[in-house]
Amino acid sequence: MDRFFTVEVISQTSDPQQVIYAAMHQDYAESFVWHDRDRFPPEARCGEIIVKNLLAGNRGHYGPLEHPQITLNCGYFPHSTMQQMRTHRVGVSFDVQSFRYTGKRILDVISGTRDVEEVFYLRPEGQYTDRQGKHYEYTKELRHQDIEWCLAACHRYYDRIQQGFSEEHARGILPFDVRQHWVMSANVRSLMHLLDLRWKADAQLEAQELCELIWPHFKAWVPAIAEWYEATRLKKARLAP
């Protein structure tokens, strides 16, 4: 796991499994369920009911899962990972750090106040396989060359800024995988779908690591649903719940 990657919770619907229970219950209840809220089962029991009545046996009724929402702050991931995640916008909202306004960290590398690897992402040394199954090694020497290339790009960026270039113009010469932060909101259903897509075995390494960091927050938030997901869907690429 990259030492800078991080995911933190900004906010989340409280008692999310009770919220799902209320939505599910209204589907078949004669009463206006708001009047019954004091009689809802406890949060943990609601989770058990949801798994039994909605999820077990692949019943496929996922609508009630769309009501609770969690907002995550994802930090220090490469630009390419942000692009992969932002592709999945159904039920997921994004606000992403703009390189048009946030070039100071590039200049910080030049001043020595920020490490180059805090600003640019490079994969760790090791053995890799491309999509055609060809094997190759990313050696210490090759990685060092790439760090030097990132440093050179920072110097070129600095020169362009000093020449009066706008940040949106100067950024064009930077290596692709500048680290980037974003805020992401998702409901229970859309977050499971995102995990289906980006935590499967052939997903890109960095996307899988993002899912690894999202997972503990999801598990703490909706534990019964997470337990069901872990047993039935986790890393199985069963898409679009």
Rank of each mutant, 00 (worst) to 15 (best):
K140H: 10
V116Q: 06
A201C: 06
I161R: 09
E43Q: 14
A56K: 11
Q162W: 01
W182F: 15
I225F: 10
Q180W: 03
P68A: 09
T81A: 15
L151D: 01
D146I: 01
M82T: 10
M1N: 09
Q69C: 15
Y157W: 11
E48T: 10
G126N: 02
R45V: 09
H88P: 00
L54C: 12
G47S: 07
Q180K: 08
Y158G: 00
G103H: 08
H193E: 15
E118R: 13
R160F: 10
E66V: 09
W228F: 13
D146S: 03
R3C: 08
V183D: 03
L174A: 04
E30L: 08
V183S: 03
I50P: 09
E66D: 14
Y158I: 00
G75M: 13
A201F: 12
P42A: 11
G172Y: 02
M24K: 05
Y76C: 08
S98M: 00
W228P: 04
T129Q: 12
A201R: 14
F4G: 11
M1A: 12
R37E: 10
H88K: 02
C211I: 12
L210G: 09
H181A: 09
V33E: 05
M82E: 10
R233D: 02
Q84A: 13
D159P: 01
E230V: 02
S185Q: 11
I50K: 11
Q12C: 07
L151S: 03
R114V: 08
P78S: 08
R238W: 08
R105I: 06
M1W: 06
H169F: 05
L65Q: 14
M1F: 09
A23R: 14
I147G: 00
V119Q: 02
R37H: 12
D130H: 10
V178A: 12
M82C: 15
P124D: 14
H181Q: 07
E30P: 04
K140A: 14
G112M: 09
F218D: 05
L195E: 06
Y21I: 03
Q208G: 12
I225P: 07
L65K: 15
E209M: 13
P42S: 07
L65H: 15
R123E: 04
E117V: 05
L142Y: 10
W149H: 13
E141N: 06
A203W: 06
T102I: 03
W215Y: 15
G172W: 02
H169W: 00
N187P: 08
K200H: 14
V33Y: 03
R105S: 11
W34L: 15
S93M: 09
W215N: 08
V33Q: 03
G57H: 01
V222T: 10
A220H: 00
Q180D: 03
D196Y: 13
V9N: 06
E118Y: 15
A56V: 03
R39A: 11
G75W: 04
E125W: 01
C46N: 14
Y76P: 02
M1P: 08
D130W: 11
T139N: 02
G75F: 02
A186H: 01
Y121C: 06
Y128N: 10
Q18F: 01
T113V: 11
R131Q: 14
W199E: 12
D36A: 00
A22H: 03
P16G: 00
H79S: 04
K104R: 15
R86M: 11
Y128M: 10
Y62R: 08
A224K: 07
F120Q: 07
Q17A: 13
A23I: 12
L213E: 04
E230H: 00
V90W: 04
R105N: 10
L54M: 15
A56Y: 08
S80M: 05
I10H: 04
